[in-house]
Each structure stands twice: as C-alpha cells, then as structure tokens.
Design a protein around this nucleic acid. Structure first.
Lengths: 170, 170
DNA sequence: TTCCGCATGTAAAATGTTACATGATTTC
DNA sequence: GAAATCATGTAACATTTTACATGCGGAA
C-alpha cells in the first residue's frame, strides 16, 4: 500500500491537487513507483476520507487542493520508521534471462545486447533529467538527487553485467 | 502477465507438478518473480485450459504432472522475442529515500545504514545459495548463474550507494 | 499412530491497468 | 473559435495477496 505513502510524502512538502501530484509523479516518483491517474484520484479520495489529508482549497474546474494533516504526517513517519521496506523484486527483464536457453544463441545474445543498450539509454535519460532539474537545497532536491544517483549507478551496473553475460554465452 | 511465462519457462526444462514448481520457484525465480501458491495453481489451470500445457501424468494425492505443449513453447518463444520487457520499477526501498527529509537526521542516516546492511546480507545469502547449488552445464545452470551474478553485482552496487548516500546527508 | 511433507484447491479483498466519460479555462 | 491544458471521475478487468479448507502417503 505504498502509493498511499508516496502521496503523503509529496504532500509533506506542500499542498497540491490531484493534477499537480500527477505532474510531479512524472518527473520524480514515476521512476520508483509508477501510478496511473485513475489510481491517484481514487487514493486521494480514500486518504481524505481517512483524515490523513484534507481539502484545503478549491479552485477553478473543480480543482481540489489537498493538505497533509497531522495524522497524515504521523502516518508517513510511522511508515518510514516502523515498517520494514519490502524487497522489490519482480523483474520482467531478469525473468527472461532464465529462459534464454529456449532461443537460438544469436537471439539470446541479441537480448543481452539489447539490455546493454537499454541501460545506456536510461543512463543518458537520467543524465538529461539531472541537467533539466533546477536543483535547490530543499529536502526534495537533496533526496531526489540521491535517488537519481542510484539510478545512474544501477544502469551502469546493469550495462556492465549485460556485457559480461553476453560474453559468457558466446 | 509474466507468471504465465515463468511457469512455461520452468516447464520448458522438464515436466512438473504445481507442487514441484512451487519448490523450484523458492530457490530460483522467487528472487525475480515472487508468486504465491494460490496464484500458481490458478495459473496452471488456466494454462491447461488454454492448451499451453497439458496433464501428462497423475500421481498419488491428486498429483498432476504438467508438460509444455508445442503451443506453449511457441508462446514462450514469442514472449521472449516479440514482446518488449517492461522496465521494472516500483521500489519501496527507493520510494522511502525521497521522503527521508521528514525524519530527524539520525533516523534518516539509520535508514541508509540499514540498507547497507541489508545489501551485505543479501549478498551473503546469494553467495550461500551459489555454494549450495549443484551447478551443471545445463541451460538452467548457465542462465541461473548469470541471473545470480546480477544479484551479486546489484547488492554490491546498492551497498556502495547507500554508504555514499549516508555520507551525503552527514 | 501421529506427525510431516505432499498436494490441490477456493474465496475475498486489495491493488493496479485500461478505457471511457465529461467539462471548464486559458492561450493562440 | 479551436486547440491545448487543466481537472476530476467511473467502470471493467486483470493481477496479487491473504486466508481458509481439505485430505493422502510415508516415515518414525
């Protein structure tokens, strides 16, 4: 149930509408916790009903601005400190590796080279994202940068691994 | 819909019952694609109904041994070559990093040190798994070893990153 | 004969995806 | 006035998790 906490986390910075949160997801959290528009509006309604956030202002076109309540902040802190992060596994990419044996060798190699290229590409995309963001000294910037560094290191690691793996098969 | 393909993949090696597959998951695929017992039995029934696998033998206690059909193998190959792997994101661990700012500094640091230790631990667990497996020259062994190497590199990367991140905050 | 492991299944709830549906406001 | 963007929502479906439910066979 982490979408809940992702929303609480974003609202801990400043109040926002569902639409605002949707936009902020795209450039930050989408990389670690994708969510659809449907899901977000639904979850916001539930969070408001549970008293973890509240409608603090209404604007044009039915816009509803949500603000984190004290209960919401407490829940966010509780989640961060008292609950264990579950290891994230489920990787379609890696699952496929197990079964490369059913393909002719050249297709198996092609898959791994594809992963190398994918990793290079994602690395470059993250670099571009890094450049495009106006990093400040605020907490989101500091932690966002740390998460981004993770992405860079991850893709570098994966590229090297895919190269090594392709060599193993060859 | 990859559980489907995970099962087809395992059956491509050799026929097995739901229970067998459950056991095999635990020591291999569970790391990249966790699935519960409920889910597996349900999926096997659907796969059989779709003709991608068939019951090739029945044993004591209602045991049903499934064998991959030609259609199943074709579907597995199709999945591997014609469909793009979706990038696996959704990381609870990384999501939390974004919001460490709501915690007092020592708790934020503690989280990162915890990640370092977790990564060390998982690295050791994978090493132990590596030792415990009787690696052969079969295709599962070759590809399983490649996936395992990924896990080792991943955890080493994450440990270093967490150390770096803790230093950033301090 | 009692326990452990083998063996399969169903039901309910939570979560996530895709598609549809609607309409207001701003900008060109 | 048209197009883009802002803005929210519902419905159907697929997937995943958790819990319950049952019973056989082998070994000590």
């Amino acid at each position: 149930m982490s979408l809940r906490h992702a929303l609480l986390g974003l609202l801990s910075e400043r109040p926002a509408s569902g639409y605002d949160l949707l936009k902020r997801f795209e450039t930050s959290l989408a990389n670690v916790w994708p969510a659809t528009q449907s899901q977000m509006y639904g979850e916001l309604t539930k969070l408001a009903a549970a008293g973890l956030i509240s409608v603090s202002a209404e604007g044009p076109r039915g816009r509803k601005e949500y603000t984190l309540t004290d209960e919401g902040l407490a829940e966010l802190r509780h989640w961060l400190t008292e609950t264990k992060p579950q290891r994230n596994t489920r990787s379609d990419i890696l699952l496929r590796v197990f079964f490369l044996g059913v393909l002719p060798p050249e297709q198996a190699s092609a898959y791994l080279t594809g992963l190398m290229e994918l990793s290079e590409q994602e690395y470059e995309d993250l670099r571009a994202l890094e450049q495009s963001i106006d990093w400040g000294e605020d907490t989101l910037s500091v932690h966002g940068r740390i998460a981004l560094e993770y992405g860079l290191r991850f893709n570098a690691m994966r590229r090297d691994w895919a190269r090594w793996a392709a060599a193993q098969l060859g």
